[in-house]
């Protein structure tokens, strides 16, 4: 059943844009990650193209979120983590010694699994990143806040209460606010860690629409548990299993004609 549904979704999608012929935008080369002595990611190599939505799928604990967090070096915050290998974005090794993590994170935004708006007003949530990066004038801020809220399809819902607390929004709205906050500082890449897993189906579909919209301007990497979601929104899909990359390719191929047995088992719902 699931199989046919996903195949149907994939069939409805427009054919994926042909990958750009130039160098891949994000190049993950032989990356291994250790928590203390245990190896959480095993020699992963992966190339992601610009302005493409890539989905990371796989059962829990397969390392997909861990890899995602390598891309903006959020794993640096955890003690006892060691990373081998090399990740290049736009040709720059982001783990090189002279890299400033702060500058990196300005270019690689992130949306988390659990919506985490700051306990400030809606306006201040979006303006926070802008202020951090030196935008001071009121009119610039107003314009930028409005633009990001529009891009995240939240403007019409909140324009009358910009200065009330963000905690008063519904779960789906909070998550879209987090997206607005992330895109306000105009990153090149947006990482999304199961952004819709805590939301109801309607809110989820709004987030998905938004992702398809954002694809025009941003490179998006999304971790998801929901295979139908991956099928609906992504151009490329990577399947992980216990720290290994099993298969990577165009979404349509992964879901309809996977070359690995384990991928097939997973996407057809035999485990996971």
């Amino acid at each position: 059943m699931a199989e046919t549904l996903i195949q149907k979704i994939v069939a409805q999608q427009a054919p994926a844009a042909a990958p750009a012929a130039g160098a891949p935008f994000i190049r993950i080369e032989d990356v291994s990650l250790y928590y203390g002595a245990s190896k959480a990611l095993k020699n992963i190599s992966l190339n992601l193209d610009e302005k493409v939505v890539t989905a990371f799928i796989g059962p829990s604990g397969c390392g997909k979120s861990t890899l995602l967090r390598c891309l903006n070096r959020m794993n640096d915050l955890i003690d006892n983590v060691r990373i081998d290998g090399c990740i290049k974005i736009g040709g720059h090794d982001i783990y090189a010694g002279d890299v400033d993590v702060i500058e990196l994170r300005k270019r690689v935004g992130m949306v988390f699994q659990k919506s985490n708006p700051f306990p400030k007003s809606i306006y201040e949530n979006v303006a926070y990143g802008l202020r951090l990066h030196g935008m001071k004038s009121k009119s610039d801020l107003d314009a930028a806040v409005e633009q990001s809220l529009r891009s995240s399809a939240l403007w019409d819902e909140v324009k009358d209460r910009l200065h009330s607390s963000a905690l008063g929004l519904s779960g789906g709205q909070q998550q879209r606010l987090c997206i607005a906050r992330a895109i306000a500082i105009k990153p090149d890449i947006i990482l999304m860690d199961e952004p819709a897993s805590a939301l109801d189906p309607i809110a989820t579909s709004r987030i998905e629409e938004l992702i398809l919209e954002l694809k025009k301007d941003f490179t998006i990497v999304i971790v998801t548990h929901n295979m139908q979601q991956a099928a609906r929104i992504s151009d490329q899909t990577a399947f992980f299993y216990i720290g290994e990359l099993i298969e990577f390719g165009p979404t349509a191929k992964i879901f309809t004609n996977p070359s690995q047995k384990r991928t097939e088992d997973y996407v057809t719902g035999r485990f996971g």
């Binding site: 903006n72 959020m74 915050l77 702060i102 500058e103 300005k106 700051f118 306990p119 992330a182």
Partner: peptide
């Protein structure tokens, strides 16, 4: 909540 710190750091703070 640690999520608030992460959110801020992820924005390049």
């Amino acid at each position: 909540p640690p999520g608030l710190r992460e959110a801020s750091l992820a924005l390049g703070a």
